[in-house]
């Protein structure tokens, strides 16, 4: 009978950890639980590292080289960054992106608030349902189809100009997407149209959780609809507005698809945005270094714009 005798201490620690050897047992269990947690997180972490961190690192690395994507590369230090800020062709794209914030963010959030407020007041009617659907449809339509439709609408013989002529404004008609003065605003209008639905829906959802008693109290205090809107609705929607502003600012700064479909940056680069310029530099001019530098600058810009918004809306809550 050469059975190995079990170490009683170890046995006790295994079966009755809490009583006999509480400290180490809890720690080891916690460690085990932690290891399991890491194991569960591992696939996501690996994917994140592989598909987000790794390319990000590569982009930063590429931005320090002059490289055509195939041949040998040469180290140029920060020259590509200098070029981004000194070459008007590149720097203008950043200015255009900021101009787009007006259309992609200010208009949809402002208008979305007004529309959501109106829909809330008629929430129980069938009209509200119709309005909600109509306003949200642009989010459902593929952007490519929307872009093509809008380029027809905005053509010189398109519906927009027909309507303008019909109401006696024939003098202002033009090829909206082909005119230097109006191309960027026209692209902005398309973006506003797309994002309005998203903002309205988010804000409407936020409104539905505002306590009705607040409105009642305000009304008893003699507040009109305008006062109600600014004193109750808007402050209560701080978080939702924060989300809307974040999403729309990012879509303005990182705009690509709408511009690519409607104008491809034309006429004469008047609608060129960083996203499209990065793509053109990388794949047409094969200036991978400059493209990467612009991409890094764009990323920093987006963070610089979005983090304060996040902070503002979070502090309040």
């Amino acid at each position: 009978m050469a059975r190995p005798t079990l170490d009683p201490a170890a046995h006790a620690a295994g079966s009755l950890p809490a009583r006999t050897n509480g400290g180490t047992g809890r720690r080891s269990r916690r460690r085990r639980r932690q290891t399991a947690g890491w194991l569960f997180a591992a696939p996501a972490l690996v994917a994140y590292a592989l598909f987000v961190l790794w390319p990000m690192g590569l982009t930063v690395q590429y931005s320090l080289y002059s490289w055509n994507g195939i041949g040998a590369s040469t180290w140029v230090g920060l020259d590509n960054y200098v070029q981004v800020f000194t070459d008007p062709e590149l720097f203008d794209t950043i200015l255009h992106a900021f101009e787009l914030i007006l259309y992609f963010c200010v208009v949809p959030v402002g208008l979305g608030l007004a529309i959501a407020n109106t829909i809330r007041r008629i929430a129980t009617t069938r009209l509200a349902l119709v309005a909600r659907t109509v306003i949200f449809i642009p989010q459902v339509i593929p952007l490519v189809a929307a872009g093509i439709t809008w380029s027809w609408l905005l053509a010189s013989d398109g519906l927009v100009n027909q309507v303008l002529s019909a109401v006696g404004l024939g003098g202002v008609t033009r090829a909206w997407l082909g005119d230097f003065g109006t191309a960027l605003p026209a692209v902005g209008v398309i973006g506003a149209w797309v994002l309005l639905g998203l903002c309205t829906l988010l804000l409407l959802a936020g409104m539905s959780k505002i306590d009705a008693a607040l409105y009642e109290a305000a009304r008893i205090d003699g507040a009109g609809p305008v006062r109600e809107f600014f004193s109750i609705t808007v402050p209560s929607l701080r978080q939702e507005i924060g989300v809307c502003v974040t999403v729309t600012v990012i879509s303005a700064l990182a705009a690509f698809d709408i511009v690519y479909i409607s104008t491809q940056g034309g006429p004469g680069n008047s609608t060129m945005v960083p996203g499209l310029e990065i793509y053109r530099q990388a794949f047409f001019s094969r200036e991978v270094g400059v493209a990467s530098a612009l991409a890094v600058v764009l990323m920093v810009l987006v963070l610089a714009c979005v983090l304060p918004v996040q902070r503002l809306t979070r502090e309040a809550s």
Partner: peptide, 30 residues
């Protein structure tokens, strides 16, 4: 726990950047 997570995330990020940082892109002569 937080600090350990930070270390882990940081090291993942760092390996990415370090690994990327060795040598210029496209060095393999065509």
């Amino acid at each position: 726990r937080i600090s350990r997570r930070r270390v882990a995330l940081g090291s993942v990020a760092l390996t990415g950047i370090l690994a990327a940082g060795c040598g210029g892109p496209g060095d393999n002569s065509s």
